[in-house]
Each structure stands twice: as structure tokens, then as C-alpha cells.
Design a binder for these strands. Sequence first.
DNA 1: CTCCAGGGGGCCA
DNA 2: TGGCCCCATGGA
Length: 215
Amino acid sequence: MKTQMSHLSTWINDGDLFREKIRELDKEYGPQNWWPRILDIEDHAFEVALGAILTQNTAWQNVEKALARLADKKLVDPFAILKSNIRTLERCVHPSGYYKQKTKKLCGLSKFVVDECGGHISELKKDKRARDRLLSIWGVGPETADTILLYGLELPNFVIDTYTRRLLVLLTGSESWKNCSYDEAQEFCSLAIPKSVKSWQQVHALIVAWGKVQK
DNA sequence: CTCCAGGGGGCCA
DNA sequence: TGGCCCCATGGA
């Protein structure tokens, strides 16, 4: 993908503004440590994948309740999810909202992991086309895929969300960041911040921390 | 009571 | 592509 020439000079300036703001937020909020990996990479990545789907347009607090119910029933496992009945899954997912849709999404994810990854989502770590394969799952869009890749599989994929767009609009005074494609926003951020899993994890978490306190 | 969270799919022009 | 509507709970 090629950057439009007309964007080149503004992207350089916007990048400076973006980095400066991130430095400021980093000083203000400190290390966020989202989804620290305690488990092995496989269990961690699958848990992150569940959380990434459950948190779609949903407060994280509600996601934690759903994840706790799933853990309580030993359902943080693709095989267990596929063997479980829908009603049980729906009861677990319920507090996170959109529970019927999200239950289908968790099943779709699990089916993908079992059928196409030999039961191990961490197999994707070795696949150059991991992002496209995640995007092929019903219910997994760009933000969810990148969240799984960055926080679950610890691969350098910058996560773009509405807060990121809001921050860019505010910093640059350009409304275009609100309407541009996901991929364009991602390309900009990826070029603005030196590529590093740890720092990209921190940057996205900082932007969310910033977004939460905005009115 | 209203508003909206760490989105994504379907549909339609 | 781009705009709109739908999905749904829970906390402020």
C-alpha cells in the first residue's frame, strides 16, 4: 500500500504531534500493562481472543463478568466451547451484551481454531497471513483481529479504535482521521511509532486511558 | 430517564 | 466505498 504523495508532508507533521502526545500520556498515565501474559502463549492468546470479541462496543467491566463465567465453567478453550451447548454459552456471555451474536462469534472463533489451526491459535504466530485468516472469521473485524495479534500473539499490529481517530482529529485539526479507512489510520500510526510489540501495546492502552477521561 | 461503552455484519445506493 | 440500522447489558 502506497502513501498518497499529498499526505506525505502532513503525515510527517502529524506524526510529530502524535509522538509528542503519546510521550505526554506516557508520563501522565505510566505503564498500562494490558493483558499481561501469565499463561503460556496458547492459553493466553485464546483468552485474549475471547476478550477481544466480547469487548466489541462494550465496557470492559462487563467483559470481565462474562470471562469469569466462562472460566468458571472451564470454557476458555476452543474444544470446550464447541462441545458446550448454546444456552450455557449464552448465559456466560450475557453480561457483556449482544449475547446472542457474541455467542455465535465465540463459536465461530473456536471452530476456526479447531479446524484451521489444529486447535492452537498460537499456530498463527508463524503465519504471515495471520491477519487475513483472522479477518475471515465471522465477527472478527480489523480492530478485533489486531487486538488478538498485538496482545494475544504478541505480533506488531497497531490497533486502531474510535479513540485513536478522535485523538488524531483533535491533535491535527483534520476531520479526515475520523472518516479515513482503518488501514490508512493503521499505516499512519505504524509509521509514526517505532515498531515494537511492547510499545504498540502501551500506546493503544494509553490512548484508551486518554479517551475514557474525555467528556 | 438518557447515554454509551476498547465493533462488526448486513443492506442499499 | 459510505451511510445506516441492528445487536443488548450495565453503569454513570
